[in-house]
């Protein structure tokens, strides 16, 4: 077990290093002169040189990478070009918003995804099953920003149910905040809900074919008891695993949702940092997001290994 954890940990470290290398490589090859973009209009060559020195842009790529790497263990991510403040501070402000939104989305995914999946597995090939299959497929097939705009149109502009965008203003109570979460969380949850529904369906179907279920049925247990007591418990293991890992994705991949709904989270910051070529900000944000993502993966894998001994015994090819 310890060996398994150690090995997973070592893999994670390698991934993080790889990610930093990739990002630095991307950033180093961006077109345009960053110093000129940061400088006042018509700045002299001298001013540009000062800026380059200040942000280490004059150093060779490897040196810059080294300077950056040295600060990482202390989470020193440098100062943002555009905000002129430490990147960590900005992450500190925006990350809680992304996490809150991801939690709200996760709730939606759990409730609707599992419900739809179990229903369609139990009533296989029924009208309900077909409906779930089609509607989940349509959800996956829709561009997320279109879903967002349509929701704003229907629920906010026509029905006036929810505020069209933005985070709850400071001082709003928990209950008063809920309407602000509904639409962005639903848009963010759409794709994952569809996947969870499909995953739950296929996993339930698989379990329902297992011998012990057949035995349970043969023993004359009621169908309801078979499903709720036996099938559900085992059928949902892969779903729970997926949900755990998806949480990391929900935090990091909300770029479009956060843009459409003007949500002050990390995705929002990241998009604008990329287009404004705020190097330190992009590297810092992606670094933290990836860190969260791999950390969650690691936790999920380890806890899964506790639950399912087959994994840790296996010299089997690594997971994730």
């Amino acid at each position: 077990m310890l060996l398994f954890i150690l090995r997973r940990f070592y893999q994670t470290v390698i991934v993080v290093i790889g990610v930093i290398l990739v990002i630095s490589l991307l950033m180093a090859s961006l077109p345009g002169d960053v110093a000129r973009m940061r400088a006042p209009k018509g700045a002299s060559e001298e001013t540009l040189e000062n800026i380059r020195q200040k942000f280490n842009l004059d150093k060779p790529w490897l040196t810059r990478l080294w300077i950056y790497l040295k600060g990482l263990p202390r989470l020193e991510l440098g100062d943002s070009f555009t905000y002129k403040r430490p990147v960590m501070e900005i992450i500190g402000e925006s990350l809680p918003w992304s996490v809150k939104l991801a939690i709200a989305a996760e709730i939606i995914i759990v409730v609707f995804g599992i419900l739809a999946g179990v229903i369609s597995a139990v009533f296989r090939y029924s009208f309900l099953d077909v409906l779930v299959t089609i509607s989940t497929s349509v959800l996956v097939a829709m561009p997320i920003y279109w879903i967002g705009r349509l929701m704003q149109l229907f629920f906010s502009q026509w029905l006036h149910w929810f505020p069209p965008s933005g985070a709850p203003p400071p001082g709003t109570g928990l209950l008063g905040s809920i309407p602000y979460y509904v639409m962005p969380a639903t848009a963010l949850a759409a794709i994952s809900t569809a996947y969870v529904a499909r995953l739950a369906r296929s996993s339930m179907l698989e379990v329902l074919r297992q011998d012990y279920i057949v035995t349970a049925r043969a023993k004359g247990l009621s169908e309801r008891k078979v499903i709720y007591k036996h099938a559900l418990k085992n059928g949902l293991i892969p779903v729970v695993t997926y949900l755990g890992i998806d949480f990391g994705v929900l935090i990091g991949a909300a770029v479009l949702t956060e843009m459409i709904f003007n949500w002050p989270g990390v995705g929002h910051k990241l998009y604008f940092a990329v287009i404004q070529r705020d190097h330190t900000m992009v590297i810092g944000l992606v670094f933290i997001l990836v860190l969260i993502f791999v950390a969650i993966n690691l936790l999920v894998d380890i806890s899964y290994a506790f639950l399912d001994p087959r994994i840790r015994l296996g010299e089997a090819p690594e997971v994730t």
């Binding site: 704003q152 906010s156 502009q157 069209p164 965008s165 933005g166 459409i260 709904f261 003007n262 604008f272």
Partner: peptide
Amino acid sequence: VVFKIYQDDETAYQDFKAGT
């Protein structure tokens, strides 16, 4: 006066229509 900050005109316009 609260200056609400938006990234695109469209979202802001919708908030206006909603009365925010």
